[in-house]
Computed example of a mutant assay.
Amino acid sequence: MNDLTRTTITSIEAAEWCGKKHNDLLKDIRRYVGQLAEGKISHGDFFKETTYQDVNNQTRPCFLVTKKGCEFIAHKMTGQKGTEFTARYINRFHEMESGKLPCPLNPQIASSVAELGRVTERIMRKQGSPAYKIAEAFKLECEQFGIQLPADFVKVPDYEQLSLTELLR
């Protein structure tokens, strides 16, 4: 499984890229797995069922999606969303293959990072920190564990992006 997690994304991330609810993508993937089984084609090259811990520490289902799995999903999509999904998965897998993107963490470490993020959020909210500052702190915490979040993870409000020269005009 270690090799598999180094060459996969989660169905959670794939659902976000597809613009779908995670549960809807899970249904789609389960349908694909069933159809592959009917054709006597192994689904292991595409999808591997696993679980994750949600914010309430409950175990939830998800899939690890390989590059082939992403191609499979992309071939089922059309239009703008299909184009965007394809571009995102191609970029992500090229980053993983070139070593520019750290490999996903094992579930225990990922759970610890998530808990650290929850604690940080709770403390910062009590101190009145805005959402984008909490996101910046979480991004820094992730980077300390070798987790690279997307460049647009932190969305600074427009009013915070004004420069001093713009204010003096």
Rank of each mutant, 00 (worst) to 15 (best):
M1I: 03
D3A: 10
T5Q: 01
T7L: 00
I9G: 08
T10I: 12
I12Y: 00
I12S: 02
E13K: 08
A14E: 02
A15K: 02
E16R: 13
W17I: 05
K20S: 12
D24W: 08
D24I: 04
I29A: 06
Y32F: 13
Y32K: 10
V33T: 15
L36Q: 13
E38R: 03
S42Q: 04
F47A: 14
K48E: 04
E49Q: 15
T51G: 10
Y52I: 02
Y52V: 01
D54S: 08
D54F: 04
N56G: 02
T59G: 12
T59L: 06
R60D: 06
C62I: 08
F63R: 11
L64H: 10
L64S: 07
V65E: 04
T66I: 12
K68I: 03
G69H: 01
E71R: 05
A74D: 05
M77H: 04
G79K: 14
K81V: 15
G82Y: 08
G82C: 03
F85I: 05
F93S: 03
H94V: 05
M96P: 03
G99E: 06
L101K: 13
L105A: 08
L105V: 11
P107F: 13
I109F: 14
I109C: 12
V113A: 11
R118C: 03
T120C: 15
T120F: 02
I123K: 07
R125P: 04
G128D: 07
S129A: 15
P130I: 02
Y132G: 03
K133E: 07
A135D: 03
E136M: 15
F138A: 02
F138P: 01
F138Q: 09
K139D: 13
F145L: 05
I147N: 08
Q148S: 12
P150G: 10
D152G: 10
F153C: 11
F153P: 01
V154Q: 07
V154L: 08
P157K: 04
L164C: 03
T165I: 11
L168P: 00
